[in-house]
């Protein structure tokens, strides 16, 4: 399981940027379709993007909390370079947490055009 796993793995590492990718894809695809087929529904689209952004951020925060737990709540500082299960887990937790931060920033970046641009205008 991705979100209930006791130990982190490569899938939990990839989950936060995947959320960014899905959010980005949704914004782009929905934007392209609305601007091509129904520009009058742009306001609804912007609301939908807002909702998607909140949803994505919630996912990322949950993943970040889990990563924080895997990291050992910061009890052990990097470099996490000993050959033990514990350090392996702490390393993956830390890397995932950093990726959560980056993904959250990227999601917010991605949502900003919908906040400021109110027409399809080519």
């Amino acid at each position: 399981m991705l979100f209930r796993s006791e130990t982190p793995n490569l899938w939990t590492l990839l989950a936060p940027p995947t959320v960014w990718a899905l959010h980005f894809l949704f914004c782009y695809v929905a934007g392209a379709i609305i601007c091509a087929k129904a520009p009058e529904a742009l306001d609804e689209l912007r609301l939908a993007i807002a909702a998607a952004t909140i949803l994505a951020l919630v996912f990322i925060v949950v993943a970040g909390m889990q990563a924080h737990r895997h990291w050992g709540f910061g009890s052990d500082m990097p470099p996490h370079d000993t050959p033990t299960d514990e350090d392996q887990q702490h390393f993956l937790g830390l890397a995932t947490m950093l990726l959560c931060a980056l993904s959250a920033v990227a999601v917010i970046f991605g949502a900003m055009p919908a906040l400021f641009i109110a027409e399809c205008m080519r």
């Binding site: 980005f24 914004c27 782009y28 934007g31 392209a32 601007c35 742009l42 980056l102 920033v105 990227a106 970046f109 991605g110 900003m112 055009p113 919908a114 400021f116 641009i117 027409e119 399809c120 205008m121 080519r122």
Partner: peptide, 21 residues
């Protein structure tokens, strides 16, 4: 090429975000 301004915004934002990593 005449993409909708909104689409341009999405790609511009992501292009700036990639500067972080």
């Amino acid at each position: 090429i005449g993409l909708p301004a909104l689409s341009i915004g999405f790609f511009s934002a992501a292009s700036e975000a990639v500067a972080i990593p």
